[in-house]
């Protein structure tokens, strides 16, 4: 009973936050609602027994990605009214596309059948019962053994994203002073410090 209640609480807050993300007037509020939505989604995962994904969602999305988002939004000072200008004009197209996708989703939910021929093929990657193995371990087993190819491939994609970002943005500027710790340490005292005998009251 409590589980059901909690589920509805998380679900309602998630949807409400999603709605607020697109309607809030202040972009910072939008991002904060987005974060709250992430948080409640993590709660939903937790209810499903997917504790690992739930925590990773909080750590990665809420703890890192959304922080950067918030950073940018706070600093950019986006003018939402400016961005909303074409809203009414494009609304019918947007609604039409949305309606089409909605209808397709309905066809899925009303007529969802898994082809029997492929169920046996899936045995290799079937989900083990939650009581037998922690889902952290189960995920690890799949990602690092069965799907290691995809894991490595995603690694290459991320590496490429990093290379691309650096290529397109890094500029070597002149006149930037950089601290070189090794140079500082290697400086001998004899070259830099001069000991002077000063007679008292005499000054240098």
């Amino acid at each position: 009973m409590i589980q059901t209640l909690v589920f509805y609480m998380f679900a309602i807050i998630t949807i409400a936050c999603g709605f607020m993300v697109i309607t809030a007037r202040n972009p910072v509020h939008s991002v904060l609602f987005l974060i709250l939505a992430f948080f409640n989604a993590a709660g939903l995962f937790l209810l499903q027994g997917a504790e690992f994904i739930s925590m990773i969602l909080v750590i990665v999305y809420v703890g890192a990605v959304a922080v950067l988002f918030l950073f940018v939004v706070m600093m950019l000072d986006v003018n939402l009214n400016e961005m909303r200008r074409g809203f009414v004009k494009y609304l019918p197209i947007g609604l039409a596309v949305g309606a089409v996708l909605l209808v397709e989703l309905f066809t899925i939910f009303t007529a969802w059948v898994v082809e029997p021929a492929v169920i046996s093929v899936n045995a290799a990657t079937a989900t083990p019962a939650a009581s037998e193995v922690h889902n952290t371990e189960a995920l690890g087993n799949l990602i690092y053994t069965h799907y290691v190819y995809l894991f490595m491939g995603s690694g290459m994609v991320l590496l490429l994203a990093m290379v691309g970002a650096i290529v397109l943005t890094l500029r070597s500027r002149d006149g930037v002073k950089k601290q070189r710790i090794m140079d500082q340490i290697a400086r001998p005292a004899s070259e830099e410090v001069e000991l002077v005998k000063v007679s008292s009251g005499g000054g240098i």
């Binding site: 899925i108 969802w112 898994v114 082809e115 021929a117 492929v118 899936n122």
Partner: peptide, 19 residues
């Protein structure tokens, strides 16, 4: 995702068997 949803697999051989 639609194909996966209806076929239950993403693997090409399995899909070929299904359709």
């Amino acid at each position: 995702s639609m194909v996966y949803g209806f076929a239950g697999s993403t693997q090409f051989n399995a899909l070929a068997n299904a359709f």
